[in-house]
Design a protein around this nucleic acid. Structure first.
Length: 800
RNA sequence: GCCGGUGUGGCGGAAUAGGUAGACGCACCUGACUCAAAAUCAGACGGUCUAUGACUGUGCCGGUUCGAGUCCGGCCACCGGUACCA
């Protein structure tokens, strides 16, 4: 009988769908396991061969967990709001909702074809009003708790399209679509106070099991630094407050720099007002791209007529404005210590400012000496002779004592810009009332449905398409009943994905985002796998929302995900990213048609290290197909014996151990290699495997290639199914062969191998080695001065 | 610049914890089967040489060790993140 993968796979997929084999049951007595993968964006291009990599991985883990006796939740859904769909809709003049529906249908069909054990009854779609009702509800809660606010901030503005662009749409300072230059423009935007959670987001990383690079990336992104704030008096009478991490170098501060946007500038009337105003205008016009391009060349203008006083030395020092100081970090002002800061050194050199050494150990004539471990404080009055660390503490103490500063902590993390001037997103459920200001919609009015519009394009003034709908905008104030207008901005794509994993636990709940019972049973997520590109956005955002929901008593745990792993990308055969424009996309449908879903699943896991980038190979796929053919043919003739055969027992016990361990450590490639080696053994030995051997092979294979495993299971008349068979235990003692191959080295060089009984003592191994013909010849006439034995592995003879 | 990662055959990649480098697979080669091919099965498969043996080999240079892909010191290349964060 031939391995008819198409018929077999359809047969089992239909059965699983009809019998809801993989439905997750809330409140089951068994221990729960919640496995999660990032839900896809349903693009018009459909699934490509990179998508199934993480899905197959977590499907394997989930299938193993079920066999281990867990109640498993493995859900799938669609993150469907967002720009590509909107752009596609504009281009093809189809409503985004229709585009979304069609794309989801395609994705669902493709996913089902691969035999994942998802609970499809829990499938969610972020654009479904029943779903985004709760996204809006969370926003209202954030607003109620003072974590959502409106602020005027600079946004990316395309000078040709006359619209606001998301950061991702700006490529090298130009508009991604039309190529026109992008400048910055102030616009009023909704913001979320993620910064209020900065410390907790950092601290709680210690409580979760994320791959280290994900933690590091989040830590860097949050960017905590401890330093001091210091007040500098000015001759204008105002106090200029700075933040520094090097308060130990205060005696070396020879000038100050404030950002072009610093608020004191509006108050001061320096002698060169016009020059300063001009610099401010120039700085405002610069795009992010220009700012970074010009990063090496420092520019700035001295504020004439106003000087600051260094509180340590009492000396007057000049004040500059320069765009190398950012308005958004610290206090927007710095004390410049050119002797010990690279940027200050460059600026001082350019403007001919004094450079004073206050930490010895470097050569400040050549470059700034910024090492903060070595070096001794000099030229610093009461701190001379101290180490940098001691001087920091001493200065902090002195500042506090003087009442002009003290220890401060700063974060790089900024608040989250939450508005988009776009159509295809969740409407923000706020109205603007002349009398009452920003007023939240009452919960009873949720969901605030996204209305149909004529045109999905951003308006000429850069407003959302919703701004062109006066009938929808006009409403009454929920508070005072007077006339009011609706917010026309929508939420960013990150909104719906910040809490979707909670909805999976109870996806059809009409009264809450999920019942407490479901949340208590399923959360937190036990294992979450996703792309590294989401580490600083999605992963951080969802941790923030989760902590907030925890604070207001909605969810039971402070962290959403207990374990986080990440997969590498699959590149096209040419080594480039798969993309429609390059025409190098591999469609999983083609692979399934040619080789079957089980082969695709195996190959995508066998392709290489799961965490690393892998290059697709259309020829290598058939190695996995060959393997399944060999498994199929093997099962057709074996010995009628339900126990493990003596010949294969040790190899099987080793395989149970290896495959099980490898699945836990994302080493799917070596797990599959182990199964291949086992099957090769069954062939090589010319000694047929027993029925028991076959059963064990199918059990281990089932998570990887579930269709063929079930089919063969049924053909063999094994009881139950491969999917419900308990995951086998191995016996450590049985993994070991009674005879070991021992490497024989002479002077550290391999000269041969001998067979020795298991755990043979040193003398036995030595005598076996000496009896070996070749070894005998090599050591003949020489004296063995030393013998090193590694038990069951190696013997090394040192001869003279 | 800073942070993280990676360098192993023609190719994808293995190698607990310093102990037989190259598991497993692809490609190529040889043989069996076949009229032939495909498929299948069996075997060979890092390089060099004076080839039943020896030397050499895990990005480069040096070190520790009986023994180094693995540890230490110093470089180089590539990939990812981030970027004037005071």
């Amino acid at each position: 009988m031939k391995y008819e993968f198409s018929r077999i796979e359809k047969k089992w997929q239909d059965k699983w769908e009809k019998e809801k084999t993989y439905a997750a049951k809330t409140g089951d007595d068994k221990p729960k396991y919640y496995a999660l993968i990032e839900f896809p964006y349903p693009s018009a291009a459909g699934l490509h061969v990179g998508h199934p990599r993480p899905y197959t991985a977590m499907d394997i883990v989930s299938r193993k967990r079920r066999m281990q006796g867990y109640s498993v939740l493995l859900p799938m859904g669609f993150d469907a709001f967002g720009l590509p769909t909107e752009n596609y809709a504009i281009k093809n003049k189809i409503h985004p909702a229709i585009v979304t529906r069609d794309n989801i249908e395609t994705f669902t069909k493709q996913l089902k074809m691969l035999g994942f054990s998802f609970d499809w009854d829990r499938c969610i779609d972020t654009t479904d009003p029943e779903y985004y009702k709760w996204t809006q509800w969370i926003f209202l809660k954030l607003f109620e708790n003072g974590l959502a606010y409106k602020a005027s901030i600079p946004v990316n503005w395309c000078t040709s399209c006359k619209c606001v662009l998301a950061n991702e749409e700006v490529v090298n300072g130009e508009c991604e679509r039309c190529g026109a230059p992008v400048t910055r423009r102030e616009k009023s935007q909704w913001m979320l106070k993620i910064t209020e959670y900065a410390q907790r987001l950092l601290d709680d990383l210690d409580t979760v099991d994320y791959i280290e690079r994900a933690k590091t990336q989040q830590r860097n992104w949050i960017g905590r630094s401890v330093g001091a704030e210091i007040d500098f008096k000015t001759t204008a009478g105002d106090t200029l407050r700075v933040f520094t991490t090097r308060q130990d170098t205060l005696f070396g501060a020879t000038y100050m720099v404030i950002s072009p946007e610093h608020p004191l500038l509006a108050k001061w009337s320096p002698d060169n007002l016009e020059e300063i105003a001009e610099y401010q205008t120039e700085a405002a016009k610069k795009s992010d791209f220009e700012r970074t391009e010009l990063a090496k060349d420092k520019t700035g203008v001295e504020i004439q007529g106003i000087r600051a006083i260094n509180p340590a030395t009492g000396g007057e020092i000049p004040i500059f404005i320069s765009d190398y100081v950012l308005a958004t970090y610290g206090t927007g002002a710095i004390m410049a210590v050119p002797g010990h800061d690279k940027r200050d050194w460059e600026f001082a050199k350019k403007f001919g400012l004094p450079i004073i050494e206050v930490v010895s150990g470097g050569n400040i004539e050549e470059e700034a000496y910024s090492d903060n471990q070595l070096g001794t404080i000099v030229n610093s009055g009461f701190m001379n002779g101290l180490s940098v660390d001691d001087a920091k503490a001493e200065m902090t103490r002195w500042l506090t004592e003087q009442g002009i500063g003290g220890e401060t902590v700063n974060f790089k993390l900024r608040d989250w810009v939450f508005s988009r001037q776009r159509y295809w997103g969740e409407p923000i459920p706020i109205v603007h009332c002349e009398k009452c200001g920003h007023v939240p919609l009452p919960e009873s009015e949720l969901p605030l449905i996204l209305p149909d519009v004529e045109n999905y394009e951003t308006t000429d003034t850069g407003e959302s398409p919703l701004a062109a709908m006066p009938d929808w905008i006009a409403t009454t104030c929920p508070k005072c009943g007077g006339p009011a207008s609706r917010e026309t901005d929508t939420m960013p794509q990150w909104a719906g994905s910040s809490w979707y994993f909670l909805r999976y636990t109870d996806p059809h709940n009409k009264n809450a985002l999920a019942s407490r019972e479901a949340l208590d049973y399923w959360t937190p997520v036990d294992w979450y796998n996703g792309g590294m590109e989401h580490t600083t956005l999605h992963l951080l955002y969802s941790r923030f929302w989760h902590k907030f929901l925890y604070d207001i008593g909605i969810v039971p745990t402070p962290e959403p995900y207990m374990k986080r792993t990440s997969h590498g990308m699959i590149l096209a055969e040419d080594g480039q990213k798969m993309s429609k424009s390059l025409g190098n996309v591999v469609n999983p449908n083609d692979i399934v048609d040619a080789f079957g879903a089980d082969t695709l699943r195996l190959y995508i896991m066998f392709i290489g290290d799961f965490e690393k980038t892998a290059i697709w190979s259309s020829t290598a796929v058939k190695g996995c197909k060959r393997f399944l053919d060999r498994v199929w043919n093997l099962a057709e003739n074996q010995l009628e014996d339900d126990t493990l055969s003596a010949k294969h027992e040790a190899a099987i016990h080793r395989a149970i151990k290896k495959v099980g361990d490898d699945i836990e450590h994302l080493k799917f490639n070596t797990a599959i290699a182990t199964l291949m080696a086992l099957v090769n053994d069954f062939y090589d030995d010319k000694e047929l495997p027993s029925k028991g051997d076959i059963k064990m092979l199918l059990t281990l294979l089932a998570p990887f290639a579930p269709h063929i495993a079930e089919e063969l299971w049924e053909n063999q008349d094994f009881s139950g199914s491969a999917a419900t068979e308990p995951w086998p235990a191995y016996d450590e003692r049985k993994t070991i062969e009674s005879e070991r191959e021992i490497a024989v080295q002479i002077g550290g060089k391999l000269r041969g191998t001998v067979m020795a009984p298991l755990d043979a003592d040193n003398e036995t191994v030595l005598s076996i080695a000496r009896d070996d013909e070749r070894i005998k010849r090599l050591i003949d006439g020489k004296e063995i001065v030393r013998v090193i034995v590694v038990k069951n592995k190696l013997i090394n003879l040192i001869v003279k």
